[in-house]
Design a binder for these strands. Structure first.
Lengths: 208, 208, 208, 208
DNA sequence: AATGAATGAGGCTTCATTCAT
DNA sequence: CATGAATGAAGCCTCATTCAT
């Protein structure tokens, strides 16, 4: 039931080091801009030895993206139709924010891929991602129909959560420059909480 | 008062073509990933001729960034302390959204520069940008003190506007993949309007 | 009517030098075994400059093969159905032998390509070459039916001419080693003449 | 009397597998063009294990050539001065043809070596091979002097037999492409028989 | 007897830049 | 103002070989 070959300890260590080095390089410079030299240097391996573990630069990049996609959608998957609507949405946003804080390189890798036109993951976006978003949009619309949250466009609501949370990973340099280096995530969490509570509070419905 | 040399019509045309080609290339692939060949091709010039107008790849990139920064902050500058607070903030968000719609390449160029660690414009971020943001944050805090808008953190409010609006330029590919190619800007404008009206409406203040 | 771009004198010279150097290298070592360094050295160019004229190693090889094929079949084309049968066939064999003498590198290039399994020109062999051979076989069979030359299998007759003549280019090293360096082509011409006169002479027909 | 070390069964098997894999690879791509990876793959061994049996790529190639040369001249050795001249020569040609049919890879290996300029076996060509050919040429000249076969140049006669028979191994791809995949050896045998009978038949002598 | 791990050298190609005209 | 020609440096990758186990 498991086709994966057993990895030796050295293989495990080196593959991990390569992926980490690749994440560093690709997340900063994108696929084209990163070099195997940088990755090999970061991984503490010679270039040919690096290519002993991954057959090509492309393979490293693809492995990173696949691993990323596998976990990237988890927070949205966890959005529970049976939970409390406002709390579910707020919790989703907070999970995304935590990911930006704890995995900023992954977020920037993703951003670079999208900026480049999504040459590798375009199909995932138009397929699994779209389906997942549509499914969760139906859930949200159900909550709106039931009067549990304010009526708004679920797709743009989801986009807004992506934008607001990933911003603190992708534009980290800018955020810290403007704030003067303080850790931005606590404040961001509070702001995002306030923002979506305001939006979703049904007491506002009459205003529209 | 003007040190700029007079440019002939051909010079003007070719410089513009190079900058446009460079914008195409750099906004997609970043500085390292873009090539002079792409830019020359896009500009309809030979590579040596391109380097007749700009001395190096770096010079093209720098020229683009300088031109970008000159206009990038205009919408925030225009935020008027004497205007109606809610409308001023909403108008600012809408101006930013229009820029994302009309100048998506510039937005992506900026995003790439930030993702790469802002090697060229780091100083601008920590200097002029920070000062401008701080200045407008004071304005907003004044509005909050006056009870004209709800109390929130002005810096994160500004970050949120950047994130929400630039997202539709930077992640355009993803947005269109999820939505199925419809023009996202109209819906985005409505959503953003609703979102900030909810947030800023003082009727909510007691909830917090 | 002529799409070929005009070549400057330098282009003409360098392209010719590259093709000649490529012919040297490929005819000795085959496609895989030859290196761009050898070709560049032989052409008196730096390696990047060489790639300024041909986009890749493969392009040089392909250009050589195309040029080769264009002339390789000429001697057989010239076989005239209306000429004297024996003299036509003998003249064909002599033309092929002259090609081996004057263009031995081309012959060896061809031999290497065939030995490697004809990865580039397999289609030509099974298409145009086969058709040409079949057509000339019909001509020869007509001569046999008319009693003008002895009856034999035209296809194997053609193969034998190829084998006998190309041998003196392809196995030149061996031939000279065995003969002790004398020019083998004169003797080869005499032998081939005698061989095919014996074969084709109708006086032998009763012997079979 | 035997310096060869005793080989275990595994050693025997693996050495044979390596030589066979090497024959595959070298006969197609030549020495430079073939890779140890191909050979190891074909032999079903890891690359380091392969180098446990043969110290280098060169050693495999040399072993193949030595083994080849040991058998390559056998058919000519067997030409018997006391046999029937015409039948002896025809039998020699048929033995060579059978070798082309049964050992085409060896023929192509030899062809590649010669095309490359015979860097390894040049000495054999100018030494033992030349002596053998000269010796048999003397035999043939004796037959001619005795009026048993037609007068012709024995060296070119031998070359022609090599060329005609090896052609069906070395240019196999071309032959099959032209014929349309039928087994060419039967027809080749008939043609070669007819060709040399015509040549050697003394009834023709007056024609020259 | 065998393999996982590693590498220096070399091979093809790209690229920013320079030179000459 | 423009281009053809050229190149050093670097980038990705292959390969024969070595080392350690």
């Amino acid at each position: 039931m498991n086709d994966e070959p057993q990895l030796t300890r050295i293989q495990t260590r080196n593959r991990a080091a390569i992926l980490s080095g690749g994440l560093d390089a690709f997340s900063i410079a994108g696929f084209r801009g990163a070099t195997l030299d940088q990755i090999a240097e970061a991984a503490g391996l010679s270039k040919p030895n690096l290519l002993y573990y991954f057959p090509s630069k492309d393979a490293i990049y693809t492995a990173l993206l696949e691993h990323l996609l596998a976990t990237w959608l988890d927070p949205l998957h966890a959005l529970d139709a049976d939970g409390d609507p406002v709390e579910e949405i707020l919790a989703y946003a907070q999970r995304k924010l935590v990911m930006s804080r704890d995995y900023p390189r992954e977020s920037r890798l993703f951003a670079n891929e999208i900026l480049a036109g999504a040459p590798q993951i375009g199909a995932v976006l138009a397929g699994p991602l779209r389906e997942l978003v549509d499914e969760k949009a139906v859930v949200m619309r159900g909550w709106m129909d039931a009067g549990k949250i304010r009526r708004t466009d679920p797709h743009y609501l989801i986009f807004s959560i992506w934008a607001l949370t990933q911003h603190y990973a992708d534009f980290d340099v800018q955020v810290r420059a403007v704030l003067g280096q303080a850790d931005p995530f606590e404040g961001a969490g509070r702001f995002i909480d306030q923002l979506y509570r305001s939006l979703l509070d049904t007491a506002h419905d009459d205003h529209l």
